[in-house]
Write a protein that binds this DNA or RNA. Structure first.
Lengths: 331, 331
DNA sequence: AGTGTTATTGCAACCGATCTCAGCAACCGA
DNA sequence: TCGGTTGCTGAGATCGGTTGCAATAACACT
């Protein structure tokens, strides 16, 4: 039950250890008869190959690091979940690395992963990624980023169309009859977050409205501050777009503490489409990002880059998810 | 910048590779002069030891698997977060393994971790753990379980005192004037979940009340069903204890959809103390589990067992966290 | 039968460390 | 001055596989 090395199996099967090795990793190079015999013996012994030894010799492994700033944030949690699945559908093992937003830790993970011969990595950043830093590691040449990156086309990315998402939100709110719509930024200092805000600013201006940015911070308290700001206004907007679901939760919670009801007094729409939103009070209307797709695509992109060196930038379509936190403005 | 093996450093420092090895892993065995020189050279080259090679040779590594059923569940996410920290404070690397409740996957992770020479593992189960299954792996002898386990004292555990937690909740509610208190179970089929429910049953009976179990399922929809049950009652309880925070969220959300207000119409108290609860609407009153402590203690227990073979069962004290979802019953 | 291919398998070096053993120099006491 | 420690370093086997190369077997063809 222990100490099962390849030599043990080899002996038991009456062949050389290299043959056993081939039987597992290059089946076509072994006579099918022999192979089956070996496999049977191995099976009987309960033998599995050591990924460590394999990686060491092959100088490549199946460990795929997913680097996220905070696993406690449901967005990253959902990403981690779908990526785990996507990864082992393809025979990889996802290694979750949590940085807490500390760049030093990110660096640490990169060197570690390089040492583990990870074939590539996925980064879901909380701030604008510094591609130069990424490339200080030769490993950094094989990274897929879940965000838009600026000024560097050499790293594959997957994102959703922020403008389109904001447009969906705005259209939904306009359709309900809202004309005064506020915005609360927050949490992530990524390009994506920036894009959402820019889109909001631009599009409300275009439609003749006045942008009302309730808070533009990028920490966890943006939602709370946005709500406070809202409460202090003499003539507050009738609807609020939150940069992401977590912020929307915070906004609604803070508003509720002051007796402001959603959607009765003000409509709130989020951005992310977290499963959790369906269990919020009220259930959150939001712009859904296809998180599951993002996971699969990120891995495909990485594999593609490894294979033929191509660098793609995939932009996914978001989708409006109407639940309970938006309604017609009260007259 | 690449191909940095121990031999390269050895050559550069003019010593044998075994000396370099010692300089890193057994500093006291090398003349301090030599050691410092080696370290300096290594530093200059940007050298780090290969954890793979180390693990292979030493037959022990610093990889610590944390096996959870669902990382999307904030409880496990918070656990993962604190354990990550606890782990690398002690020089371990936490490997997050998500099973989705599939025992086969759990098995897979165990063999994998055994192959990686993990010194021990932590299991946060979603169902009663089968210690027999655990021990089919020699690795299984070095596992700490985050739950109470029955009929097997040989595996270390860390839990919180469920009875005490329920008592805290009941006392709080009684103090506010509630006499009719319902209960919604849910999500986890663990001993812990069982204990909470048993405690509720027992203690309300003791205080002369009638237990009202709104739902006793153990899936994600228990909360919703519990709320439905509540709505159909002619004379519903004035307060509800939820087996955990996620269930409480679902209860409040479902209640809200039917126009029932928390805490105005009914008080709801959760169990877990998730950070997310503070951002719920209303902010959730709950029984806080010391999740951070659990993480640290789990690792300590594992190390202790590794060191002297001792098997401890730590029971932590929960704590009442009063936020906005409970108030006096309406008359 | 003789020769050229091709399919299989064994051999042995190698991946990047660790660790036991042995060698050697400096040091101690008598 | 000599045997006995002690401190430090080098040699080389080893962990569990992989892989290029050589050897042999098997088969095809003329």
């Amino acid at each position: 039950m222990s100490d099962l090395s390849i030599d043990v199996v080899a002996k038991a099967a009456g062949v050389h250890r290299s043959t056993v090795s081939r039987a597992f990793s290059r089946p076509e190079a072994v006579k099918s008869e022999t192979r089956e015999h070996i496999l049977r013996v191995a099976e009987g012994l309960g033998y599995t190959m050591s990924p460590l030894a394999q990686a060491l010799r092959r100088k490549t492994s199946t460990f795929v690091p997913l680097i996220v700033p905070d696993i406690t944030n449901p967005f990253f949690a959902e990403l981690a979940k779908t990526m785990t699945q996507a990864a082992d559908e393809r025979g990889y093992q996802l290694l979750l690395c949590v940085t807490n937003g500390d760049p030093a830790k990110t660096d640490g993970y990169f060197t570690a992963m390089q040492a583990m011969y990870a074939p590539f990595g996925i980064v879901a950043p909380s701030t604008k990624v510094d591609t130069k830093a990424l490339k200080r590691f030769d490993f950094g040449h094989k990274v897929v980023v879940i965000d838009r990156v600026e000024g560097d086309d050499t790293v594959p990315t997957v994102t959703v169309d922020s403008r389109r998402g904001i447009m969906l939100a705005l259209d939904h709110l306009h359709g309900l009859g809202h004309t005064s719509i506020g915005y609360v930024s927050g949490i992530a200092g990524t390009h994506t977050a920036q894009d959402r805000m820019d889109a909001y600013l631009e599009m409300t201006a275009q439609s003749g409205g006045t942008p009302i940015v309730l808070d533009s911070g990028s920490d966890l308290d943006a939602g709370t501050r946005g709500a406070e700001h809202f409460l202090q206004m003499g003539n507050p907007p009738t609807a609020i777009i939150a940069a992401n679901d977590m912020v929307a939760f915070a906004v609604i919670s803070a508003l509720g503490r002051s007796g402001v009801r959603v959607p009765d007094d003000v409509s709130v729409i989020g951005f992310d489409g977290l499963a959790l939103g369906a269990r919020f009070n009220p259930a959150l209307t939001t712009i859904r990002q296809p998180i599951a797709d993002m996971g699969h695509i990120a891995i495909e992109l990485a594999e593609k880059q490894n294979a033929d060196g191509s660098v793609d930038h995939i932009v996914l379509e978001p989708e409006l998810l109407v639940r309970g936190s938006t309604s017609e403005p009260r007259k």
